[in-house]
Design a protein around this nucleic acid. Structure first.
Lengths: 123, 123
DNA sequence: GAAACCGTAACGGAGCGTAACGGTTA
DNA sequence: CTAACCGTTACGCTCCGTTACGGTTT
């Protein structure tokens, strides 16, 4: 399929797909007119990439983990995947902690402020 | 004071300080030799900038909020600050939620995997 | 004259968005 | 002919780190 169709079927922009392709994350051949031609299973492959990106990994890590996916879409427990995921859990923990602290600081500041009367409060 | 001293006293790199300066967040005059010359209170100003960055705001928002700080270092409840902070709390909430979901996904995947015996496990 | 500061300019990085310009095809 | 795709540069964005090159001061 052409890149436009792949974009439609995955919800990922053609620009992003070209980006993944240039980094070697997608299996694409070219037609005689130089248009990229993706096999059907690329739809699933893109979904896997987005899954990995969504959990906070970068494209470099995603590239290394793509071979760890089994045919059923499950991430297999290869050594690479295990370490990457474990590391990412810790990274997420650190980020979450930092963001919760920031959130607390903000709420404290807001709580200490007097409430400004607004016309909208009396309908 | 010169930029090196400001960097030392704030723990912020000179490069970052020049960046803030170029964006108009720092009050700096120039000496005859073109060296930046910061007044003493810039130390506190930099701390405020870092505080705002630490809670997830960007330099653009920081620039708008700096005038909202009172002399005692407290962020005053001006309309601008109130909205910015409230918005940021929501942004943090969204990010935290997303990261926790990602964390859960990772742990679920890791839990389903068999434990690989390692030499290091038997000392 | 070296060491230690200061300055500006500019590339790099992550993941694309967004032109800008041009070929292709229905 | 035109609309709708496709292609390849290449700059922009965020917050600086990091050269690279050069003047200033001690």
């Amino acid at each position: 399929m052409l890149i436009g169709e792949l974009a439609d079927r995955t919800g990922v922009s053609a620009r992003a797909l070209r980006h993944y392709d240039r980094l070697g994350l997608l299996p694409s051949r070219r037609r005689s007119n130089r248009y990229r031609d993706f096999p059907d299973h690329t739809v699933e492959r893109v979904r896997r990439i987005r899954l990995l990106l969504d959990i906070g990994l970068d494209l470099d890590a995603a590239k290394r983990l793509l071979p760890c996916f089994a045919d059923d879409g499950q991430l297999a427990p290869c050594q690479t995947a295990r370490r990457a995921l474990a590391d990412q859990v810790q990274a997420l923990d650190r980020s979450i902690t930092a963001m919760r602290q920031a959130r607390t600081m903000l709420l404290d500041a807001l709580d200490q402020w007097p409430v400004e009367p607004t016309a909208a409060q009396r309908p």
